[in-house]
Design a protein around this nucleic acid. Sequence first.
DNA 1: CCTCCCTTTGTAATCCGTTACATTCATTAT
DNA 2: ATAATGAATGTAACGGATTACAAAGGGAGG
Lengths: 327, 327
Amino acid sequence: MANIQQIAKKAGVSVATVSRVLNNATSVTPKTRSKVEHAINELNYEPSMLGRNLRNSESRQILVLLPGISNPFYSEIINGIQTTAIANNYNILLCETDSKPERENIYFNMVKNKLADGVISMDPTVNMKKLKKLAEKHPVILCSEYEKGGSIPYVTIDSELAAYQVVKHLIRLGNEKVALINSDEKFLYARLRRSGYERALKEFNLPLKSEWIYHTKNLDFQQGVQAMRMLLQLEEKPSAVFAVSDTLAIGALKAINLEPGHPSIAVVGFDNISFSNMTNPTLTTVSQPMHQMGCLAVEMLLSKMKNEKVDSIVLEHELIIRESTMG
Amino acid sequence: MANIQQIAKKAGVSVATVSRVLNNATSVTPKTRSKVEHAINELNYEPSMLGRNLRNSESRQILVLLPGISNPFYSEIINGIQTTAIANNYNILLCETDSKPERENIYFNMVKNKLADGVISMDPTVNMKKLKKLAEKHPVILCSEYEKGGSIPYVTIDSELAAYQVVKHLIRLGNEKVALINSDEKFLYARLRRSGYERALKEFNLPLKSEWIYHTKNLDFQQGVQAMRMLLQLEEKPSAVFAVSDTLAIGALKAINLEPGHPSIAVVGFDNISFSNMTNPTLTTVSQPMHQMGCLAVEMLLSKMKNEKVDSIVLEHELIIRESTMG
DNA sequence: CCTCCCTTTGTAATCCGTTACATTCATTAT
DNA sequence: ATAATGAATGTAACGGATTACAAAGGGAGG
C-alpha cells in the first residue's frame, strides 16, 4: 500500500499538499487537487489511520463497557451508540467485561494508551472508584447505571419512579401481595427500584414482607425461574410479581406456567425488550428509550471530548401494559 | 502522559533499553531492568499503542461484521470471539452493518487503513464480491454464513443436513404437511435449509407445496408472526412448521397462540438461543455450537494472519427436542 | 597486561501523516 | 514598473515506539 510520499512524488507536489487534499483544506488549486486525486486513484492510496492517529493523538474510537451482550436491553442501546458514533466518524470498541475486573483493567489501559478517546460505561459491575479515577483525565459517560451525585455525567431514567408506578399499578389492580424479584442491591438501579416498590406499598399501607423480596445473582432467564419457584413455595404466596428486568420476568412467567394448576399471578418486567411481546402471556413492562439513550450517551461523550460542560439527562420511561397484568 | 524518552532519561538509559524492558527482551541486566521499571512506576508510564501500532504496522484489532446484534444468535458467537481475542491480545471492533452497503464500505476501508488486522464476517448480507477482493490482501474468515467453494475459509455447520434431520423428525412424528418459514434465499444458509427440507419430503414421498414455503424479509419475531398467520389462512393448513431461525419460530408460536382454538401445530426453530427454552411451549430447535464457532473463527483468523494454511471447519449441530414438537 | 569475544547498551533510522512556518507565485494598487 | 498583499505550495519537525547496527563494557585466556 502506497504512502503519502509516493503520492506526493507521483503528483509532483509536496506531502503537505497531498495532506491538504486529503483533509479538504482550502487553499488548494483545483488543478493541483486534481493532480493529487489522480495520483491517489492511480496508486489506490488510502491514508494510514495508524500514522494519522499517532500524529493527531486520537484513535476515533469509543470504548463501550458492558457486562455482556446476551441481555437484549444492551443490544438496543448499542444500536443507538453505533449509529451516532458512525455519524460522527467514530467507531466502537465493544468490551464485554463479563464482570471480570481483570478485563476492566485491560480496557482502562486502552484508554490511557489512547486506543480509545472516551468511554461509555453501561456496566453496573464496573469498579466505580477506578472509573472515576479514569474520568479525571479522560472523557467518560455513564449510560443507564450511574452514580448518584457523582462527578461523571450520565443518561438514565428515573428507576425509582418507574418502580413506584409499576407497583402502584399492580396494587390498583387489586394485588395486596406484591413480590419483588430484584438483582443484587449493590447496583444503584436495584436499590432505586426497591425503593420505588417500598414507596408504593407504604402509600397503600401494605405490609413489607422480606420473604417477598428475592435477590438474583444475575439477570439470566434461569434466575427468574428460580426466583419464582421460591416465591411459589411460600406459605403466603404473592399475587403479583415485579421483576427488575424483562429477562427475570420472562423466567418468572415460565416458572408460573410450569406450576401445576397455573396459578394466576400478575407479572411485570422492566426494559421492554423485544421478546417481552412474544411471551405467553405478553409481558407488562417499563419501556426505556434504549436507542435514544445510546445516541445521547455518544453525544454527551463528544461534548465532553470538546471540553464542553455536560449535564446529566434523565429520560422518560413508559409503563407498557400487556396481558401479564390483565388476569 | 509520559513517553518513552522521558522514561529513558529518568532511568538514565536509552530508549532502546526501555523498549527492551517493555517487551521483556532478553539481554537486559536485572539492575538496568529495575532502574527502568522504577522510572516507569514513578512516572506512571503506559506505552502508547498509537506509536507502537504505527511502528509495528498492526492494530491488534479484529473487525467483526454482523448485520445486527438484536438476534441473540450473534451475541453468543461474539462472546466466543471476544474471549479468544482477548486471550491473544486482540480487541474486537464491532460493526453492525444493518445490511447497509455504505457501512460496509466504511469498515472495509478500516481494514485497508490497518485499523483492523483482520475480519470475521458473520453477515449474510455482505457484498461477497467486495469481501473476496478484500480477502486477497487481508485475512478474512467467514463465520456461520459462508460461500461454497469460495476462497475464504469458514467455520459453520451443515445446514442442509440439520434441516433434513429436522423435517425428518417432524415427518416421523406423523406430520405429512410440513411448512417452511425461510428467510430470503439469496443467503446460502436459506438455500441449504430449504434443500434439506426438500430432501426429507422427497425421501418420504410427500408433496412439495409452494404455499407451504414462506419467505420472510428478515429474522425479526414479527416476521415469524406474519408468516404463521399466512400459513394459518391456507385452505390446507400445515400440521408442522420448520422456521430457519428461533426468532421466526418464536413469532410463529405466538401467532399460533393467538389463533382462536389454539390449533396444534408442531414448530421447530434453529439456533437454540437462550430464549427458546422460555417459550410456551418450549421450542424444539437445532443447537449450533455458537461459542465454539466464535472461538474457532478467531483462531483461524490468527493462523491466517501468520500466513499459515487455514482449512474450513464444519462443526456438529444437535437437534434439541422440546415441547413444541410433542403435541 | 593485552587481546578476543560475548553480552549489554546506545544511536539513529523508520513507520506515516499533520501542520507551523518559510517560501514562492500571482495579482492588484500605486 | 514596482511594491504590497494574499494565496498556494513546500520544508521540516513532530508524535511514540521498535530495531538494525554500532559501540562499549566485562570476563576469560594467554
